[in-house]
Design a protein around this nucleic acid. Structure first.
Lengths: 147, 147
DNA sequence: ATAATAAAAGATATATTTGTCTTTTATTGT
DNA sequence: ACAATAAAAGACAAATATATCTTTTATTAT
């Protein structure tokens, strides 16, 4: 469904939403171990979310690291996808047509439109902190270390 | 959502479902123009669906080309995805966990499971010929040539 | 049989994604 | 100020996806 980049980003954000705050920052080593992702690659992805849009906050140096503000934790997954410029994965035409619309729909348009509404609805309503809360349940995981 | 390969495959199959039969085969040139896809690349993709599984039938030489049997036209999109080995795009974990299940779910598992049911339901119930029928409506398109 | 046709197969090229490693810069605690 | 720390930045490498081009093989119509 999503690219590896997007998957790592979402997992990282959920972990940060659960475990970080301004006075408890998370380093890239802890983070990439926690979400089972390649360290340097994950660092690059996080950078995309720290710069202009500043969804993620970061501080260099000792006791530095990444964290989310309370405001950031309230952002929805859909907002994250928008910042990652990957929302079209879902909102685009399922057959890949660039000009698929009500006026000139693809053969799947009507059926997919219904599902799209639900997908976008779920992603738009689901905040990072809500997902972090899910992780209070000990069986809920965000890495592959339960194998 | 899907890769370019999968998109081209689905568009090609829908076109073949609408326009081909054993005594009216479609050449790769006509096909790739009709669905607005790169010719040789599309040919490669079609080959994957002609060999073992033989969803697509093909004949070389004059008056040859690709076509679908009536039986093939009844196959669902889900079946096509399975043959393309790309069903995991939908049935896999939305956060990319390899071991995401009821026992150890990711934080999105429960919400995505509901949507997954609907997506798989739609794809499983939608046949190539049903989609071909959609194309009888002149406003329905399967290429980008309406720009 | 032969020539024409069209898919199959193979080689190669390009672009994008994913991943690693090194150097630089910013910040902090001493 | 200084040393240690951690992210930022940049260069590079590998893998995969996408795309093109050429040669071969199978089939058909003459």
């Amino acid at each position: 469904m999503f690219s590896k980049s997007t998957e790592y980003a979402l997992r990282a954000l959920i972990y940060l939403a659960q475990n970080s705050s301004e006075d408890h920052k998370i380093g890239i080593v802890e983070l990439s171990v926690a979400i089972d992702s390649p360290k340097s690659f994950t660092a690059k992805i996080l950078q995309k979310l720290t710069h202009g849009n500043k969804l993620i906050s970061s501080v260099t140096g000792p006791s530095g690291g990444f964290y989310l503000t309370d405001q950031a934790k309230k952002k929805s997954l859909l907002k994250v996808l928008t910042l990652l410029d990957t929302e079209h994965m879902i909102s685009g035409c399922i057959l890949g047509l660039s000009e698929c619309s009500e006026i000139n729909p693809c053969p799947m348009h009507a059926d997919y439109a219904k599902i799209k509404v639900q997908l976008l609805g779920m992603l738009g309503q689901k905040s990072l902190e809500a997902l972090a809360r899910e992780m209070n349940d000990p069986k809920v995981v965000i890495n592959n270390n339960n194998r």
